[in-house]
């Protein structure tokens, strides 16, 4: 069978589908001071997965606010700088109007994913940290 670390080189999704891959990629991003990109990406997936059960609405609102505050509000943050202004105002609008939707972070997540696919992921595959691991 193909060793996991070779699969990681196939696509960003193969990398993010593996615990060890995530761990190594995050260590690399941390060195580059941009681990927030990965944390945000997972936070968006986790947010979408939250089930709509009773009592969850309050939790969702709290979580949406927390994601907004941590990654988007500070315009100097690594995540905020990579998200289009229109996308940021859409999310802000959702939070301000308490209009919480499971898909409210989807566009922002896509933008961060594209950035990782074009930038940090290929650099990771050429990094010492990955090469030493393999």
């Amino acid at each position: 069978p193909t060793p996991p670390y070779l699969k990681w080189a196939e696509s960003l999704h193969s990398l993010l589908d593996d615990q060890d891959g995530i761990h190594l990629f995050r260590t690399f991003l941390k060195q580059e001071d941009c681990a927030d990109l990965l944390d945000f990406w997972f936070a968006c997936s986790g947010f979408r997965k939250l089930e709509t059960s009773e009592g969850n609405e309050e939790k969702k609102l709290k979580l949406a606010k927390a994601i907004y505050k941590k990654y988007i509000l500070d315009s100097n943050g690594i995540v905020s700088r990579q998200i289009k202004p229109a996308t940021k105002s859409f999310i802000k609008d959702c939070v301000v109007r308490l209009h919480i939707d499971p898909a409210m972070f989807d566009q922002a997540q896509t933008e961060i994913q594209t950035m990782m696919e074009e930038n940090t992921y290929p650099v990771f595959l050429k990094s010492d940290i990955y090469l030493e691991y393999t």
Binding site: L16, F42, A43, G46, F47, A66, K69
Partner: peptide, 20 residues
């Protein structure tokens, strides 16, 4: 009640793949 950071951390962890 969970603090915002705890909530965020749990959310991030919940989206990660489970142990092989």
């Amino acid at each position: 009640l969970d603090s915002e950071d705890d909530l965020l951390q749990k959310c991030i962890t919940s989206a990660m793949p489970k142990q092989r």
